[in-house]
Amino acid sequence: MDWQLIWLFLQQGVASGLVTGSIYALLAVAIVIIFKTTDAPNFAAGELFMAAAYVALYLLVFLALPFIAVVPLSLGVAFIAAALFYRIVLQKIGSSAAVTVNVVIATLGLSFVLKGAVRKTGVGDVPRSFPSIFGNDTITIGQAVLTLQDIGILALAVVSMTIFFLFFNFTRTGRAMRAVGMNPKAAVLVGINLRRTRMLIWGLSGLLSSLAALLIAPKILMTADMGSVVILGFAAAIIGGFTSLPGAVLGGLIIGIAENLVGLFISSRAISVAPFVAIMLVLVLRPQGLLGGKVAVKKV
């Protein structure tokens, strides 16, 4: 392999990696905000993502609604569904003992329900493809070639993550969410409504998953199992430190780029191994994740 080819592959790998990585980053952020505030990973994240894609497909293809209506509708449905799941199921569980285990089981239950629902309704029984609003024209940046759709995905993901970070860091509700993640006891004492805040966080997480689904759906074949992509969101979160939002974004981009580089340089069959090698490397070299802060040492 000569240097020119290596340089070309590097550019292409990074460019394509940023596109898929931005989707992983969105999913990772959706996972991390729930983990930080509910103290349990949401194992239904993948199925929420999958179901959101099918909701959009249903509205777009079966009801023939215009794109401009489909986007807010599917985001809204995902927000409400996730918030209701918290309100109806998790809040009940929260009042029992062994909370974390039960929450995890409940999210697993939700994932089966969603998958079953998509399969049973007849929409998810055959693989389908999602129409794209962007054309298939290509753009060359340096020597990397991206489709307009890729550019659209990356741009929209960056814009929505920016909006999310501004919201999270500079609004009253965002501040309350961070407070609940940092110290729920103190949050209650300054007058923050824990249940409402956590419900909003679940809703927001659903919305982010749905956004990721809308962005990536045109690029992949839709099946009821497409939620397995969220494993890469978890991988991104782990690389970033699992409690750090910038870490989650960074982790997402790293995994996206790693996948593409491995695909170009080694073999496309090695792609699915790449994220896990990346996780292992990070955990061995920096156990707390890239931006996970110091390792917590328990005082005895």
Partner: peptide, 8 residues
């Protein structure tokens, strides 16, 4: 105790 919001 020290019920602050440590990272803020």
């Amino acid at each position: 105790g020290r019920e602050i919001f440590a990272r803020m």
